[in-house]
Design a protein around this nucleic acid. Sequence first.
DNA 1: TTTGCTATATATAACTC
DNA 2: TGAGTTATATATAGCAA
Lengths: 166, 166
Amino acid sequence: MAPISPTPSKPSLGRRRIAIRRRENIEERRVTFTKRRTGLFEKAAEICLMCDAKIAILTFSEGGKDFCFGNPDIDYILDCYLMGRSPAEICLPGGCGCGEYDHTLGESKQLYQVALRGLERDKGEGKTTAAAHMVAGQDGGFWWDRSVVDDLSLEELSSTMTPSRR
Amino acid sequence: MAPISPTPSKPSLGRRRIAIRRRENIEERRVTFTKRRTGLFEKAAEICLMCDAKIAILTFSEGGKDFCFGNPDIDYILDCYLMGRSPAEICLPGGCGCGEYDHTLGESKQLYQVALRGLERDKGEGKTTAAAHMVAGQDGGFWWDRSVVDDLSLEELSSTMTPSRR
DNA sequence: TTTGCTATATATAACTC
DNA sequence: TGAGTTATATATAGCAA
């Protein structure tokens, strides 16, 4: 019913179909990343709410900046994954459910780094326990074998976006 | 143009608006979770492709089953997050970029569990290094302080869906 | 940078097989 | 059970401020 556009060179306003492939223009890449990442987090939040699900999302932009999402808590989800346990299994004695999760115990990132320190120390002392062997025995070289991890602050490293943002 | 439906009791076929809140019917919860999780992973894959981004998604269903997504590799992304490094920083000497990532070194889950074993062993020997203290000193009780982790198989624990599925 | 605006492409709720 | 179908709700590409 609308009159035919007199300027067909402009495909009309509004969303246009694009191919799902790498956007060569860096400016477009950045804008698309920002917009779609927002949409992704919002969708994840909806799934958590509607379906009693637990979701963590870690994204790294092209430039290496990280944007993360976690419900109920990103480190809680990571612990579940890293320990190979379901959320129902990970609860403090006497407590149960995600609401009871003690963050002071489960900061997976902190724990991870601390644990690595222990491994490195063992290596330095020439220990060869079965546990240490599994990793240290690969070839003797660790790309993470630096002493930087000590000084890292959790706050600096993670940005957790809660779905209540919506 | 279409004739008015003679049975207005049925709101018509097709998608209907629903409120974004917990779906009380368990069957609906499960179906919604499956469908929207699929959509979430597909969107993530598109973002990775279009924007040179790196994304990991960990989901746990209501029943505690995990469904995960990772591009280029879930453990690679987790390593980046857990170590507090950007993807550009994590590369083997001489190599660079996600294509060069050596999975035998970076299996974060395996490493995590191994490292935890080392911590527990230190605890048993009564060591009090600075590293061990940060975790063990909290209150003396570890909810993960069990000896189950040794026997876990990586294959059993993770299901990684690659975006090439599309 | 972020934010808002269309108009349209796409995701998906309820249904069927 | 999962894999389509349909019609509509929602996300978002390109533009502008």
